[in-house]
Computed example of a mutant assay.
Amino acid sequence: MTSHPFAKSIRSTPEGLLWEPCGRWVRGYKGAVAVVDSRRPVLVWEPGVPVPCYAFPREEVRTDLLRPAKNPRTGAHTGSQTFYDLEADGELVENAAWTFPAEDLAGHIAFEWFRHRYSGLDHWYEEEEEIFVHPRDPHKRVDALAGSRHVVVEIAGTVVADTRRPVLLFETSLPTRYYIPREDIRLDLFTPTDHHTGCPYKGTAEYWSWRGDEDVPRNILWSYPDPLAAVTPVKGLLAFYNEAVDITVDGEREERPVTPFTASLRT
C-alpha cells in the first residue's frame, strides 16, 4: 500500500506510480469529436510530477481514432509505454495518448493535456465544467481568506506594497500568497507584460514586470482579473512571488521559500 499522506484509497505500482479511481464523468474533445467519454477514469501521479493525469478504460476511448505512433516519444512518462497518434477532426496529433506499463493500469489509455508542450485534445470537461491546464488534484486545497495582517513587500530595498487588507491564498504544498489591493501597490514601478498563465484552481493570470535595473525575474507580479468561483476574493488583487521578493508580515520578515517555481524564475 502507498504511504501517500492524504488518502488510503491511493494505490501504488512497482513502477512508482500512484493511482486512484475517480467518480467524475470526464470527456475530452478534439474539435467537435468526443475522443474520450468516461465515467470510470482513474487519476495517476507519476514520480517527480506534481500534478496528476487521467487514464481511461480503453472501451471509453475512441480507439478507432488512434494509430501506433510513427515517432514515439522516449523518456516522457514512467516506464516503457506504447504511444499513439490521434487522427480526429481533420488533424493528426502525434503522441497524443499512451499506455502505462503497470499491471494495475492495463487496459487504460492516458492523454496529454492541451497546454502541455506536446498537445493532445482541445477541451476537457469534468461533469459540465470545462477544466484547463491539468486535472484537479482531489487531495489539494485552495482557500482565499480575507485578512487584516500588515504586509509589506520590498524589491531591492524599495517598498513596493504596503497593506493591512490582504487576501491570503492558501494552496497545498505552496507558500501563502498575499493578494494586495492595487491602491496599496506602487504600480508605477512595474510594466504590464503580455505573459499569461492558466491554473485549474484559479483561472487565467495577467502579469507585470519590475521596471528597475536590479536583477529581478520578469513577470514577478500577477493578478486574476476573472478568477474561478472558488477564489473569487482575489479578483483584481495582485500578488508577488515570495520566492523572489522580500515580504514582511506583522513586522516579521519571511524567508524566501524554495518551490517548483524557483528554478523557472531564475531563467
Rank of each mutant, 00 (worst) to 15 (best):
R73G: 09
P138Q: 04
S12K: 08
S80L: 13
E171R: 06
L121C: 08
Y118W: 12
E59C: 10
Y179P: 04
A144I: 13
D226S: 14
T78S: 06
D89Y: 13
D162H: 12
R165N: 14
I131E: 10
K70Q: 13
F240M: 08
E206Q: 13
V36I: 15
G23I: 07
T193Y: 01
V151L: 05
T204S: 07
A76L: 12
S173Y: 06
E130W: 11
W19R: 02
I220G: 00
I10N: 00
D104G: 08
H150T: 06
A239R: 01
E59D: 15
R27C: 09
E91I: 13
A88N: 04
V61M: 01
Y29I: 04
L187E: 05
Y179C: 06
L168E: 11
K140R: 15
P135K: 09
V249Q: 03
W124N: 05
V44F: 11
V231K: 03
S148G: 12
L238H: 14
E129L: 07
P14Q: 08
F170L: 15
R149F: 13
V49W: 04
Q81D: 13
A230S: 13
I247P: 03
R115K: 06
P135R: 07
R73E: 14
W210K: 00
D162M: 10
V231E: 03
V152H: 03
F190A: 02
L18W: 03
D213E: 15
T197W: 01
E252L: 14
T197S: 09
L174I: 02
E130M: 14
N95W: 09
P72Q: 08
R62F: 11
V151F: 06
R256G: 04
S148L: 10
G120Q: 09
P181I: 12
V160P: 06
L187D: 03
H196F: 13
A76S: 08
P200S: 11
Q81E: 14
E60F: 06
V152K: 10
A106L: 11
E60G: 13
R115A: 07
G31Y: 12
E112Y: 11
P166H: 04
I109S: 07
V153K: 00
G23W: 01
R164C: 15
L189A: 12
Y84R: 00
Y118G: 00
A239L: 08
G107E: 05
P41W: 02
R165K: 14
Y84N: 03
E94A: 15
R164E: 14
V258W: 09
R39S: 15
V249E: 03
V49P: 00
P5D: 05
P5R: 10
C199R: 04
V234L: 01
G212M: 03
H116V: 00
G251T: 02
P233D: 08
A110S: 12
T63L: 09
E112H: 15
E128F: 07
P227C: 10
H123D: 10
